[in-house]
Amino acid sequence: MGLIFLAIAIAFGWEATNYEMGRAIRMGPGFIPMALAVILGVLGIAVALAGTVQHAEAEAGPVAWRGIVLVCVALVIFGAYGKSLGLVPVVFVCSLITALASTRNTLFGSAAISAALAVLCWLVFKLGLGMSLPTVGPAFGPFQIY
């Protein structure tokens, strides 16, 4: 697992070199991706080293196919329908699907988590950062909110 983290970090770090880095006081568009790639690389090395020094072999349980499939579906929905649904509905739907990936979550608990996350994303990305994604998209016709 650590090597996967390290490979992803290297790929993102490589791509970040195509952008201006800037300085800590005046960050360029490549600064945060490179910083995150470095952090992920360090964590990847730590996970890989922890896996090699671990003496007891862990028993592998069954593969959580439900979680893998639902998280992938949520990512596809977010990418495909983000602009047409808008920020709040797409975050609610995707986080609901992702929360239901766990067998420990109930439908009510998942809906509560999704509603809180949708409101938090609206506050941070729409109000705080002025994101261009509509709050409620054109798929809702007359209820569209920018």
Rank of each mutant, 00 (worst) to 15 (best):
M1Y: 08
G2F: 07
F5A: 12
F5M: 15
F5G: 11
A9T: 01
A9D: 00
G13P: 02
G13V: 04
W14H: 10
W14F: 14
E15A: 08
A16G: 08
T17Q: 10
Y19V: 01
E20R: 13
E20F: 15
M21F: 15
G22F: 09
G22T: 05
R23I: 14
R23F: 15
R23L: 09
A24D: 07
A24Q: 06
A24C: 06
R26F: 13
R26T: 12
M27N: 08
P29L: 03
P29D: 00
F31I: 08
P33T: 01
M34F: 14
M34A: 10
L36Y: 05
L36E: 00
A37R: 04
V38T: 14
I39M: 14
L40W: 02
L40E: 01
L40I: 04
G41A: 12
V42K: 08
I45M: 08
A48Q: 08
L49N: 07
A50V: 04
A50D: 14
G51Y: 11
V53L: 13
Q54V: 11
H55K: 13
A56C: 00
A56T: 11
E59I: 11
G61S: 03
P62E: 06
P62Y: 09
P62R: 05
P62T: 01
V63N: 04
A64V: 04
R66F: 10
R66E: 02
I68V: 13
C72F: 15
C72E: 10
V73H: 04
A74I: 02
A74R: 00
V76H: 02
V76A: 13
F78H: 03
G79T: 07
A80Y: 09
Y81P: 04
G82Q: 03
K83S: 09
S84T: 15
S84F: 11
S84R: 06
L85G: 11
L85C: 13
P89Q: 06
V90D: 07
V90C: 09
V91W: 04
V91D: 03
V91H: 06
S95W: 06
S95D: 07
L96Y: 15
I97N: 02
I97F: 09
T98W: 09
A99S: 09
A99C: 12
L100G: 06
L100S: 03
S102N: 08
S102W: 10
S102M: 07
T103R: 15
R104N: 14
R104F: 09
R104C: 07
N105V: 08
N105D: 11
F108K: 14
F108Y: 12
F108P: 00
G109S: 10
G109C: 06
G109H: 08
A112G: 03
I113M: 10
S114D: 03
S114W: 05
A115I: 14
A115N: 05
A115G: 11
A116M: 14
A116W: 00
A116V: 10
A116K: 06
L117H: 04
L117N: 01
A118N: 13
V119P: 05
V119I: 14
L120T: 10
L120P: 07
C121I: 01
C121D: 01
W122I: 04
L123D: 06
L123A: 12
V124N: 00
V124S: 00
F125I: 09
K126C: 04
L127A: 08
G128Q: 06
L129P: 05
L129S: 01
G130E: 13
M131H: 06
M131G: 02
S132H: 12
A139H: 15
G141I: 05
F143M: 14
I145S: 13
